[in-house]
């Protein structure tokens, strides 16, 4: 356990001390400023728009972070041969992957908390009350990002960062649309294409499962069963991806 934690911490520190993170944070402030500049132009509904933008921004930026940093994680260790130090010590390769994943989760969690606080502060200033309704969707964004993080890790241990980033992003997009893929598939007559589309539906990360954004925006009551379902779905998805990655990684030769 201590070993996994050491690797996670190291990954987290590496992220904190890297420049990518600060570039993304700067980008966040840019968005924030442009939103606050735009908001007075719209009549009424200030906080609704800010919430909408805010949640979308949080999700998008943290997904970007997961993709940009996540796909380089393992690749960098292999490429720069820092992995020689770890593999030659009594550390199971699976623990290494787990440590990398958790370290990245820490980083993403921190980012999401930071961004949520910043946007909450924005709403607080405009509305005069703290938007508790933001918290759950922010948590859901974290679930989505965690799923993407596992996919990024998978590609990171398979291919180069750029290719990995492209694949991960495509999977993210496809995952967002996966409900539509299913509904399209239902319309088709039974056959190969239908089977393939259905297969796709089950392989893709189903982002729709993890979406609660509307509830925050419209202040609807929380549907707890949906939250539990999302939690177990993403948990199972992440575990499966990590297992597959570990299987590939176990016998890999490092250069």
């Amino acid at each position: 356990m201590n070993k996994i934690w050491a690797i996670a911490q190291n990954t987290f520190i590496e992220g904190l001390r890297s420049k990518t993170l600060y570039a993304l944070l700067a980008y966040l402030f840019l968005i924030l400023f442009s939103v606050t500049a735009l908001v007075p132009l719209t009549l009424g509904e200030h906080s609704r728009i800010l919430r909408d933008f805010g949640l979308a921004g949080i999700e998008f930026l943290s997904i970007m972070l997961a993709i940009v940093v996540g796909t380089t994680l393992v690749y960098k260790e292999v490429e720069k041969r820092t992995i020689h130090v770890i593999v030659s010590k009594p550390v199971e390769r699976f623990y290494f992957l787990l440590g990398k994943y958790l370290g990245m989760e820490l980083l993403l969690g921190l980012m999401i908390i930071l961004m949520t606080l910043i946007f909450a502060a924005g709403v607080l200033i405009l509305d005069g009350k703290f938007p508790l309704g933001l918290l759950l969707p922010a948590g859901m964004a974290f679930l989505k990002v965690s799923v993407i993080n596992s996919i990024a890790l998978f590609f990171s241990s398979l291919s180069s960062p750029i290719l990995g980033a492209v694949f991960t992003f495509c999977l993210y997009l496809a995952g967002t649309l996966s409900r539509d893929i299913l509904s399209q598939a239902q319309l088709l007559p039974p056959g190969l294409i239908k089977t393939i589309l259905k297969l796709f539906y089950y392989l893709l990360p189903n982002m729709g499962n993890l979406d609660l954004k509307n509830q925050a925006v419209f202040d609807q009551p929380v549907l707890w069963p949906q939250v539990w379902w999302s939690l177990s779905y993403s948990g199972a998805y992440i575990l499966t991806v990590l297992m597959i990655t570990s299987l590939i990684f176990e016998k890999k030769d490092f250069k």
Binding site: I13, T82, H84, V85, I86, K89
Partner: peptide, 28 residues
């Protein structure tokens, strides 16, 4: 076992002391 790789390269972002601490933790 202890191992020194050929033309070693380690984590840029860590200090020497942090790195030794990290390595030690991998041995519990």
């Amino acid at each position: 076992v202890g191992f020194l790789p050929e033309s070693p390269y380690f984590y840029d972002h860590l200090t020497g002391r942090e790195f030794l601490n990290f390595c030690g933790r991998l041995f519990n």
